[in-house]
Design a binder for these strands. Structure first.
Lengths: 341, 341
DNA sequence: GATCGCGTATGAATCGTTTCAGATCGGCAA
DNA sequence: TTGCCGATCTGAAACGATTCATACGCGATC
């Protein structure tokens, strides 16, 4: 007996041709009601499930968009992915979420996987500092949208949040509390996010006539909690311990917070702390964390919309766009503010 | 000009047959070195990328396993997924992570999607209380493994953590602190996790001669932070406010913690709190959270291993297994213990 | 009565691989 | 010389759906 039932089996069972079965499935209005019912009965009886790979082969492209993020364990990216998924699924497309883990070679591997799958498009937060991965991918002819990163106009679409402004918001907030020096704990500086946030912080300092070296800098190899703990330890070892710390994301801030806590250093009394992303857990942190909120859902939603426009039926009309969203500071106890959950 | 290059174009360019090109790609040892180089050159020149859907069509099944979890925004499940992915990728398979969001109809939709994709297998934490979704899926003949849920022996593989023990650990810990009554904040009771953890807690109480009604119960519709906040508000409205609270997961506990904090109720002095899962953020919570740790990575890893065994070349030798891992209590400040990050 | 149009149904061609039975060829043994 | 072998390569037949030109009835129209 035939292990898996195909459209042919259904056709035989219903006493019609394969073309008719296909029509019942895809354009039921072309088929008489009587036939439609008979075919449907055969489908149910045999438990027929159409083969997606056969459809794709015929169609030449798949109905999924791929999303490649820097860190799947960071709730911020999960939120971005949710926004994108919601939008894509509304348009009848699926989304697969993949994790480059900030590793350019993982990124390259995933990108060639996407090419083999003939995905409809890619949403990507690039991990490769050289841009070589994306340059190679561009030749594949698959549209992609840069997420949380801005692109040179005309090359491709991008949606980002204004990281310079975000950095400035964070620093301004700390300076408003009377601090005159800030330590910036960043992830790898080849990530544009980390660079831009520093630029913004620096601008805030110099705008108030403070010297550039009022901003000290600790760079970590990764943007996660463990790296934050290490950075916290390094902070404690500095000859002049900072009174204000700005972290490039909330995960780092959590790590720093844990290190400070372990050393019995009070936050915010001895050290004020600002994070970035305002993930859901920021409000529940050991000391509720002041953070720069990014509109994560909207980031994902917008990215998906741009991709859909480019890959849609009237995609030839598409013009690459560069969308920049604005961040917002949420003050909480880690900088001496009354808590706001 | 041909938009996308196929194996035929490569064959023409290299002056060989399509079969040879295929051999160069899949069984290079069957091809002379000279030919291999010529074909490789043609591949590089034309930028050929093989079509995954065509391969799949021919092979009859795909090389990906699907994972369907209750809540993608819960770091616990992300961790489980990472464990599974690591294992699957080592075996040359891809993993797609999908989110049923505890919604049975979403679950059903994803399952039929998986059937259409002819995925190699499915790792699932079921959301459907009736089991109808899985029963229907079983007919598709695609192997699946239950994750974080145990199955009747022989029906399918399952990997779970002993939730009864987990519930007992949590309750025992609270009772050890001198509490004589506990409130259990659970998600939907149709989830086995929530039921079993309650059973364990109850067992701990009765083992000490406490009456069954020493365990009060608040049920929430979802296992997330927002539901936890609501539960916290309900806690505060109780005529006799509990002194010990056990939450079915850390997200709920965070929500409860926020509600208590907003009402200026001290944890652990006025209320002791235990969570479940021990996600990374538990240690960084407003008050570092005592929690029942589940071996999340191993859960995912083991589930993937079982699936690989069932779908592997010698899959006919496969015997369904029921693996049960053991949880572990991690005491922190939310129950009056010195912090352990 | 021939023609046209419309609603339906047909089935062959097609998508891009993989696979496999067979062709080719040089060399080696009988 | 003939037959056989192994190494290498070929080309056609799947895989399972979609699509499209075509055919078939059948009533309406001229």
């Amino acid at each position: 007996m035939a292990r898996i039932v195909g459209i042919k089996d259904v056709a035989r069972q219903a006493g019609v041709s394969v073309g008719t079965v296909s029509n019942v499935i895809n354009r039921p209005d072309l088929v008489s009601e009587q036939t439609r019912e008979r075919v449907q009965a055969a489908i149910d009886l045999l438990g027929f499930v159409r083969s997606e790979s056969a459809r794709q082969l015929r169609a030449g492209r798949s109905r999924i968009v791929a999303m490649l993020v820097l860190d799947m364990t960071n709730p911020f990216f999960v939120q971005v992915a949710r926004g994108a998924e919601r939008e894509a699924r509304a348009a009848g497309l699926g989304v697969t979420l993949c994790n480059s883990a900030e590793d350019p070679s993982e990124e390259a591997e995933y990108l060639s996987l996407f090419a083999e799958q003939r995905v409809r498009g890619v949403l990507i937060t690039p991990a490769d500092p050289t841009g070589a991965n994306l340059a190679a991918f561009r030749r594949r002819g698959i549209p992609f949208v840069l997420v949380d990163r801005s692109a040179p106009v005309g090359e491709c679409c991008s949606v980002s949040v204004d990281d310079v402004t975000g950095g400035r918001l964070a620093a301004d907030h700390l300076l408003d509390q009377g601090h005159v020096a800030i330590t910036y704990v960043s992830g790898p500086m080849h990530l544009a996010q980390c660079r831009d946030r520093r630029t913004g912080a620096l601008a805030a300092l110099t705008a108030r006539g403070l010297p550039e070296d009022a901003l000290t800098h600790i760079e970590t190899p990764r943007l996660d909690v463990a790296a934050g703990r290490d950075a916290g330890a390094r902070l404690l070892g500095l000859s002049r311990r900072p009174t204000a710390v700005f972290c490039a994301n909330d995960l780092l801030a959590f790590g720093v917070l844990q290190a400070l806590h372990a050393a019995r250093i009070a936050v915010p009394d001895a050290v004020a702390l600002v994070g970035y992303d305002d993930i859901e857990f920021a409000a529940a942190a050991a000391v509720p964390l002041t953070s720069v909120r990014q509109p994560a859902l909207e980031l994902g939603r917008t990215a998906a919309t741009l991709l859909l426009d480019e890959t849609g039926d009237d995609g030839d009309m598409h013009v690459h766009q560069r969308v920049v969203l604005q961040p917002e500071l949420v003050a909480r106890e880690s900088t001496g503010h009354p808590s706001r959950p």
